[in-house]
Amino acid sequence: MANPTAAMLVIGDEILSGRTRDANMHHLAGQLSEIGVTLAEVRIVGDEAATIIEAVRALSDRYDTVFTSGGIGPTHDDITADCMAQAFGQSIDVRDDARALLQAHYDKSGIELNAARLRMARIPQDATLIDNPVSAAPGFTIKNVHVMAGVPSVFQAMVASVLPTLTGGTPLISKSYTVFRGEGDIAGPLGDLAKAYPALSIGSYPFQREGRFGAQIVLRGHDSKLLDDALDQLAEAFA
Rank of each mutant, 00 (worst) to 15 (best):
D13F: 03
L59N: 02
E54Y: 05
N132E: 09
T5M: 01
H146L: 02
S153L: 12
Q156H: 13
G70E: 02
A235K: 11
M148G: 08
G214M: 06
P171Q: 01
R99C: 03
L190D: 11
L231F: 15
V37D: 13
A230P: 11
T38S: 14
T178H: 12
F238C: 07
R95F: 09
M148L: 15
S69A: 15
F88C: 10
A136K: 12
I142Q: 13
M8P: 00
L28H: 08
A7F: 10
G36D: 10
T20S: 11
G188N: 13
Q31V: 11
N144F: 11
A196D: 15
T80E: 08
G169E: 11
G191Q: 12
A187N: 04
L200K: 07
Q31A: 15
P74H: 08
L59P: 06
S17Q: 01
M84G: 07
A49R: 13
D13K: 14
D22E: 15
G221F: 02
A87Q: 01
A136W: 04
V179E: 14
G110L: 03
D47G: 08
K225V: 14
L59A: 05
L193V: 06
G168Q: 05
L227D: 12
L226S: 12
L234A: 05
K175M: 13
I202L: 14
D22L: 08
Q90H: 13
A40M: 08
E236R: 14
P138G: 12
D107C: 06
I111L: 14
L118F: 02
E48L: 10
A87M: 06
L102Y: 04
V147N: 04
P4R: 14
A187F: 03
A85T: 10
R99M: 06
M8N: 08
A29T: 04
T75L: 10
Q103F: 00
V56W: 00
E183P: 03
L129P: 09
L234Q: 11
P4N: 08
K175L: 03
I11V: 12
D192F: 11
A87C: 09
I202F: 09
A104E: 13
Y205K: 05
F238N: 07
T80P: 02
L39V: 02
R43G: 07
P124I: 04
S135D: 12
G46M: 07
